[in-house]
Write a protein that binds this DNA or RNA. Sequence first.
DNA 1: GTGAAAGCGCTAACAT
DNA 2: ATGTTAGCGCTTTCAC
Lengths: 365, 365
Amino acid sequence: MKTFSSGALSVNRKDPAGGRPDTTGGATLIDVAQAARVSLATASRVFSSPHLVRDSTAQRVREAARRLSFRPNLLGSKLRAQQTRMIGVMVPTLENAVFAECWHGIEEAALAGGYSLMLVTSGYDPARECERVEYLLRHRVDGMVLTVADAAHSTVLDQLDGEGVPYVLAYNQAGPRSRRHSVSVDNRRSACAGVEALIAAGHRRIVVVSGAFVASDRARQRFAGYQDAMRAHGLRPAAPVCLPSHTASNAEQIRALVRANDAPTAFFCTNDLLAIGVISDLRRLGLSVPRDISVLGYDGIALGSVVEPPLATVVQPNSEIGASAVGRLLAWLHDGGRASAAPPRVTLLPHALRVNGTVAAPPSM
Amino acid sequence: MKTFSSGALSVNRKDPAGGRPDTTGGATLIDVAQAARVSLATASRVFSSPHLVRDSTAQRVREAARRLSFRPNLLGSKLRAQQTRMIGVMVPTLENAVFAECWHGIEEAALAGGYSLMLVTSGYDPARECERVEYLLRHRVDGMVLTVADAAHSTVLDQLDGEGVPYVLAYNQAGPRSRRHSVSVDNRRSACAGVEALIAAGHRRIVVVSGAFVASDRARQRFAGYQDAMRAHGLRPAAPVCLPSHTASNAEQIRALVRANDAPTAFFCTNDLLAIGVISDLRRLGLSVPRDISVLGYDGIALGSVVEPPLATVVQPNSEIGASAVGRLLAWLHDGGRASAAPPRVTLLPHALRVNGTVAAPPSM
DNA sequence: GTGAAAGCGCTAACAT
DNA sequence: ATGTTAGCGCTTTCAC
């Protein structure tokens, strides 16, 4: 029987004497099994459940694998095992360093956990969000880590919920009543704390500058935090100033603002990139930051510590948010369907305040 | 026979009345075929070669697919077709905006071409480069787009060459004699042009500031360009100043430099991130850029136009480099093995000079 | 501890 | 134009 099974094994292989180099990418498990004179099953076990195999046998198989430069074809195992050990990641863009830093944490955590990654970007566009998620789904990712434009009104999340796809939000902060899983800082409270630091420094006229509100629920939550802080100190919140782009110069709008009679003494920008742009705009208007006007950012990207003066900001642990989101997802995937009741669905990581550099007392004091 | 084959088709499917929801992710092509009363092959053809199928039949199949919310399992096709239509991407880090911008071009081009992506970062570490590439190989990517620390001494590239894996370098510039494919600007000539602009502005004492030289062949090529420019104008090139980190403050080294008797009147930084850090360091030393000293960067990241004054720099078309690298790779993959002799292996994209903002005439003039 | 056999979901000859 | 068949490379019962 042994001779027969040996023969049966080789029946699938193309003729090795076929002339041109094997373009199909090399030895398969079958080849390894043959070379080690064990069955396909045993060879497989050596790599996936070594404890089921006698040590000496395993040695032989590994040796054969090495000799043949065997490289497991993950496609085969993924298809057969009905789980890909892949996680899909969708963020709005990598060009905002927040997400680039987050990716770092995601990659570390995922690869350490034996999972592969598939990245797509949505450009803050809900239509593209759907498209890209469908793409991830076709690749049969086991779960996803995503940052969507607006979690509360997201067709793509509703769809995912409907299909029962495991996912964890990053940066988007699920409401306490939500059934969704999320990892973020407490956007509202941390923003409130940031603005309170501004108030503590003596500022009374503080204005929020934001990107397109509709594109980011975080921006809205941070604005709410600003309102909280202002009201708690008996100050009147001002309407937010929404700038269309992070990178283009928004000098016009800024100019109108600082030229007004009751010009603000401080800006709270809902993200660091925006803050850096605003600071540049202010300089172009001949104003000095923080001497003439203070600027507070939000995100804590590394770049903020590089510029001069260093950007005052509400610091999120970006890399950790990514790693933690992956961790939550893996826990979910591994508990086998029981929707992980143990840890709370909403994870809030601690923020930090960095209030120096671009924030000082208002000029009148 | 029809009845039989219909029955045979359903033999593999689990009992739909089995109680709990189908956890395996929904309908397969077989289900669609059944529902549309066609064979598996025909159903498959509707999606991969519609022209081989009568319109009315195709309509029926598509309708069935819609009704069953059929989602093709890419794993199946990839395994069977012996090509994954996936391309692996490896860059040093996304935290340098250069690569984040590049990713944008890569994603656009790949998805437009019907290819999927798998991203890994190496952190400029050759050991991790090998690890990550092996990971990509196990996923059976059809080809790769990579930026390695040092293309001329890269074990991972040698290995890839040995195995005949199709790949295109991005940013790394293959030598004219090289058999390798690459897409980049001409690092040496563009750097030379940048330094010549400095010289044209009146600078004579120009010093190159770089990250760890060993980590980047681009940095070395750009330094060579600096030497070219200096020599062409009868000036003595100075030794490069190598800073360990992009983001930490390197004030000490900078201080020593600008306090010297023959202090430089201009710095040429081998990348923009570094340049922004150096400018901040100079400000901390009480120097004004560009009034007291000029700074020229290299990369052309979007951030450079945001800061004030805008960063003078040698602009690379980052997104286009990514898109173009993917384009070259797809061409290679599609020409079926003939190592695409038609277009040259080394693609040099045009650079641009942005010489304003942080570059001005030296103070003595 | 090891082997035989049955597929995972799909495509691609090869028939008809 | 459509159907039949044979796997892609792997894991995983079920026997022994």
